[in-house]
Design a protein around this nucleic acid. Sequence first.
DNA 1: AGCTGTGAATATGTTCACAGCG
DNA 2: CGCTGTGAACATATTCACAGCT
Lengths: 220, 220
Amino acid sequence: MAPAVIRKISDSTVRRLSLYLRALEDLGQEGSETVSSETLSARVGTTAAQVRKDLSALGSFGKRGLGYPVASLLDRVRDALGLDRTWRVALVGAGRIGSALHAYPNFGDRGFRIVSVLDRRPGRVGDVWGGVTIRGVEELEDVIRTERIEILILAVPPEAAQDIATRAAGAGVRGILNFAPVRLRVPEDVAVNEVNLTLELEAISHAIRRRIPDPREGTP
Amino acid sequence: MAPAVIRKISDSTVRRLSLYLRALEDLGQEGSETVSSETLSARVGTTAAQVRKDLSALGSFGKRGLGYPVASLLDRVRDALGLDRTWRVALVGAGRIGSALHAYPNFGDRGFRIVSVLDRRPGRVGDVWGGVTIRGVEELEDVIRTERIEILILAVPPEAAQDIATRAAGAGVRGILNFAPVRLRVPEDVAVNEVNLTLELEAISHAIRRRIPDPREGTP
DNA sequence: AGCTGTGAATATGTTCACAGCG
DNA sequence: CGCTGTGAACATATTCACAGCT
């Protein structure tokens, strides 16, 4: 069962698969047994052809004339995203962003379990967050090994990020989600994803400027 | 003098401009008067050719044999991103993510000023965050107009996001940074950027799986 | 008929390579 | 020389369009 993913899945397709997943969960909830590429594309804001191309990377199993069976498509998409298991995640940085991420319910729903929290500041160490006691960042390697951490969420100041990433990679972490606005250098076999919040606002700022000027501009 | 937008700048270039900006600020801080495409590319993790292509969209003013003057390049990049001014931003959603974003220092450094905070929950309304009193979300249109809000940061539950986006667009907001995992439908003249935290973790999960194939997945 | 799956066509983004200026 | 600026080559991603299954 569950044949391996056959084709190479591109980055942009992977990101859309994540969107399809959410839409499919909703459709399942609503009782749909089957869904067409047209319907799915409308839900996530792309085209029907794009959906078919993306899903064809998971193998062909849509029913012509009918659409895709929601339940098995859900399974396939979850498999392709590696969500057919739970992931052991550590959060480094117990500041405001760390706190928000720790409480973010969607992570747990998708199988990402934050099983450890670390912080540099002695004042934070020993605090308990939802049953997890915050440990000092000097214990990083130890935590990764004994807790079998695979993914690290980095929510620390930029100047601390590279050192932690290097140590984490050395201790065997396989992926890092980085919120610090610095480009991390890590070994090739560690997957890194950067979330740069200021960049997102700057992209909006640029887009607004390129569009039709705001009629209110110039009015005091 | 108003910044002359010369060429159409692609989305991927805009995102890299934001990275160059941070690198250039660092370089300026370190006292560099000039920087080569090679050096800049190394700092942000791209290629020298890519940097030159990107910067050529801002007009040609690098010095051959020398590189780009850091100070004027900074100005050009800021202009291109629309950062030669401050932006009036409202934050909707005073939960954990909202709280983290409100305290995020980088926004203010780049000219994004959160001048208003709104929340749906009566228990939050009236609280004061850094000098800003939280108002009820029913006052959204009023706040946008009287406070001249141009950009909205949406940090509300997914089921509330579309309604707020629609109302905000109607009241004249020009851009929305959306943290709710739903695709917003807004008029064409409103710039939207989605930040989907679960998607970022899922992309990592997929990448980890692709790198070292699971031994069970060997069957052809 | 209805809708998928996919090559072929197109569009967009990246890298190459080199002419030309300081 | 060294390094930019850029057309041309290449690589990727998206859209089209239609043959073929159910």
